[in-house]
Design a protein around this nucleic acid. Structure first.
Length: 481
RNA sequence: GGCCCCAUCGUCUAGUGGCCUAGGACAUCUGGUUUUCAUCCAGAAGAUCUCCAGUUCGAAUCUGGAUGGGGUCACCA
């Protein structure tokens, strides 16, 4: 393999998700780096669906993956609906391709048929473990004569195809992120390449497809380091040039284990549904294991694509802690134009929300939105009946005083006097408070609770104007339940 | 356990031998603005750079070892 810096052509990268569940944030994360390499070099980024495991196949998982990419705004050049020159981009539709190369490997003596049963393999591994050995296929079937093999094949005996790993030697590569990595060949198992159901394993499929699809730069998780020797052996046996390898750090749970859906929300679409902006999520994950060259915290996807470089990727696995995402989401929300924000808020507005009043309500809640989903909780008192907590209302004064305060306040809120502007409203009520010498904090908090049912709200007088005089007067006439 | 990867504030990170008595961001705390919350502004606290040796005039940065964490050892990816 040639050296890192010598590659100057267009880079082709890919993301290869398995449709086994939800669309994973790790997939989006990896894709950003893939995309950047492709864009910076005038190359292509493609999506390939790795659905070789029928047992874990989930029906709508593939659709969810594309849906997630669409929502995030990560554009790929080949795969999915787009197709491309190396279609199909789904492994289950390429079975004959893998079969062809498996046969080639067998013919060359780099792979062999194995007829061992699952039971025998389990037994073998148990014995090896008991003996303190590392579990590894014992090559029983490697010794089969070609006559035996032909006979078993003819008899339709279930079989797999295994890679024949050299007994001795060192397998190494120059990882773009980790530098020189090497393994003893003797530590590598005779990996199954073709399963008994005729599907390839990941190891065969990934090598065949990456080569055929002309992938030049292969980014993947650190979890794949230990199986990389098998892939190198495959490239060698097939006489193919190795792509550049970059093993990214593993995103982790708080306990440092590999990020999992049991311990974290890792579903891209769940972030959408919880009211996060795609640009905020992207910005947040870009900062996992990577840092902006100028130390910037807030930047767009397109800026990331411009300035990303592999040498700023850290080797340590970052913990997935979304506190910072909340902060970012607020920033992104506040940077949206009113029209854009309204548009994005739409899916989160309850059906009884008075849309015609959105323009007036929005400025009052804008800086209080952490997620788009917060809109309902922050605005319900504008258009729904409120409940007032008697104890809160009377916290700092007696029932008599509050009732008298409310009565006088209602009288001041004449149609003419004070509804032209919130400043005018404030002026008249402030005068009232001063004239009566009411305690500021008590009076205003009491009013706030009476009008909204809450202690934390947007500015009181602006809120009152949006609620409207008639409704405010009604709320200032307290009936305890 | 074998093999492999990794190791800077609670979290994300800057740092590639002297600019580091280690910088920024989030979170936390305090103060200011404010009738509340939030925003915004200012400030504080927070890391003996996992440890021990070594190289060097000088190490967070280089080397070795230890320790710790993680990954992987499937007809799953």
């Amino acid at each position: 393999m040639s050296h890192t810096s010598s590659f100057t052509g267009p880079k082709r990268t890919r993301i290869a998700p398995s449709p086994t569940g939800i669309a994973h944030v790790g997939t989006a994360w990896m894709s950003m780096f893939d995309l950047a390499l492709a864009r910076q070099s005038g190359g292509q980024f493609l999506i390939r669906i790795e659905d070789t495991d029928r047992t874990r196949f989930v029906e709508d998982a593939e659709a969810k993956i594309y849906e997630a990419f669409e929502w995030l705004g990560i554009e790929y050049d080949e795969g999915g609906q787009k197709g491309g020159p190396y279609a199909p981009y789904k492994q289950s539709e390429r079975l004959d391709v893998y079969q062809k190369y498996a046969q080639e490997l067998i013919a060359q003596g780099d792979a062999y048929y194995c007829f061992c049963s699952a039971e025998r393999l389990t037994q073998m591994r148990n014995d090896q473990q008991k003996a303190g050995l590392l579990p590894k296929y014992d090559r029983l079937c490697c010794g089969l004569s070609s006559d035996d093999v032909q006979q078993k094949l003819k008899a339709n005996e279930p079989h797999v195809i295994r890679l024949k790993v050299p007994d001795v030697g060192v397998i190494s590569w120059e990882d773009l992120i980790r530098g020189h990595v090497e393994f003893e060949s003797s530590a590598v198992d005779d990996q199954v390449l073709m399963k008994s159901d005729g599907f390839p394993t990941y190891h065969l499929a990934v090598v065949v497809d990456d080569h055929l699809m002309k992938i030049t730069h292969l980014l993947r998780g650190e979890e794949w380091i230990s199986s990389t020797p098998k892939h190198i052996l495959l490239y060698r046996a097939l006489g193919w040039e190795m792509p550049f390898l970059a093993h990214m750090p593993l995103i982790r749970n708080a306990d440092k284990s590999k990020l999992s859906k049991r311990k974290n929300d890792v579903s891209i679409l769940s972030y959408r549904d919880r009211g996060y902006l795609p640009e905020a999520l992207l910005n947040f994950i870009a900062l996992l294991g990577w840092s902006h060259p100028e130390g910037k915290e807030i930047f767009s996807l397109s800026e990331f694509l411009d300035v990303m470089s592999l040498d700023r990727i850290q080797k340590t696995g970052p913990v997935f802690d979304t506190k910072k995402l909340d902060w970012m989401n607020g920033i992104y929300i506040r940077n949206l134009s009113v029209e854009d924000l309204k548009h994005r808020l739409e899916p989160f507005l309850p059906s009884d929300f008075p849309r015609e009043r959105l323009d007036h309500i929005l400025p009052l809640i804008l800086e209080r939105l952490v997620t788009l989903k917060d809109v309902e909780g922050l605005t319900s008192f504008f258009f729904r009946p409120i409940t007032v907590d008697r104890d809160e209302l009377l916290k700092k004064s007696s029932l008599e005083e509050v009732e008298s305060q409310l009565k006088v306040t209602r009288e001041v809120l004449t149609p003419e006097a004070s509804w032209q502007s919130h400043e005018a409203l404030e002026e008249s009520i402030r005068q009232l408070q001063e004239k009566n010498n009411w305690k500021k904090s008590q009076y205003f908090m009491m009013l706030r609770i009476a009008v909204t049912g809450q202690q934390a709200t947007p500015p009181l007088f602006e809120t009152m104007r949006v609620i409207g005089r008639e409704e405010v007067l009604k709320r200032l006439t307290i009936h305890f339940h």
